[in-house]
Design a protein around this nucleic acid. Structure first.
Length: 212
DNA sequence: ATGACGATTTACT
DNA sequence: GTAAATCGTCATA
């Protein structure tokens, strides 16, 4: 990712269940304040629908200070804080009256793994952090890429701080349908029948997914 | 003002 | 396998 070529807004302007699997294979890019560039290939996502989806923060179209970013145009970032210590990154999908988003659950680290390791190394000895421990979960990748709520509401189609782009290798973003696994979402047991919906997508056999 | 809880991760038995 | 960590958010009052 030598140059800044973010995916355009039109890429995000689709039904969230259509967008989710298309995110697999795309590069998530991050530029830090000091100019350091980090990146990883998306290998796992979840779709969160609006009004009907009991698992979504926008259930019943509820609009609060926290989820306000989900009501922004497609291609904006929705970053929220949870469990008193973790951040999670979503990309907003679809149209203005459809507050939906995809949670980025895991990426395959590609650029600046040393910085990711430093960001992840809280009390864990740096040398014990394997590559598959860096970004294999929504809060892990947020930590590795130094993503927090200061990035909430950012426009990912124009801002080098956080964006999606095509991988440099030709067709690396084309994940064949038979390599995409579809499963129920993680951690939404409270959502009743919506917890069963197969809205989690990941690349089959990839070592960086959060769980199988 | 209060209290229950969370789109998680980590450590420990 | 279970449980702790840790605090902003949201519904209720």
């Amino acid at each position: 990712m030598a140059e800044f070529r973010p995916l355009p807004r039109s890429f995000y302007e689709r039904d969230v269940l259509t967008l989710a699997p298309l995110l697999l294979g795309k590069m998530l890019g991050r530029t830090l304040a000091d100019g350091t560039r980090l990146a990883g290939r998306i290998v796992e996502v979840e779709a969160y629908l609006g009004a009907e989806d009991k698992a979504a923060h926008t259930f019943k179209n509820r609009r609060t200070a926290r989820n306000a970013s989900m009501f922004l145009p497609a291609g904006h970032a929705y970053v929220y804080f949870t469990y008193g210590m973790h951040y999670c990154l979503n990309v907003v999908a679809d149209r203005l009256d459809h507050p939906t988003a995809c949670l980025i659950r895991a990426i395959e680290p590609v650029l600046s793994l040393d910085v990711m390791r430093q960001n992840r190394a809280n009390k864990i000895p740096v040398h014990r952090l394997r590559d598959t421990d860096l970004c294999s979960g929504p809060a892990k990748l947020a930590q590795a890429l130094a993503i927090d709520t200061t990035l909430d509401g950012l426009d990912m189609t124009t801002d080098p701080q956080l964006y999606l782009a095509l991988p440099s290798e030709e067709d690396a973003d084309r994940v064949p349908a038979d390599r995409i696994v579809t499963r129920p979402r993680v951690g939404v047991g409270y959502a009743g029948e919506w917890a069963e919906k197969p809205y989690r997508f990941y690349i089959a056999g990839n070592r960086h997914v959060s769980c199988k």
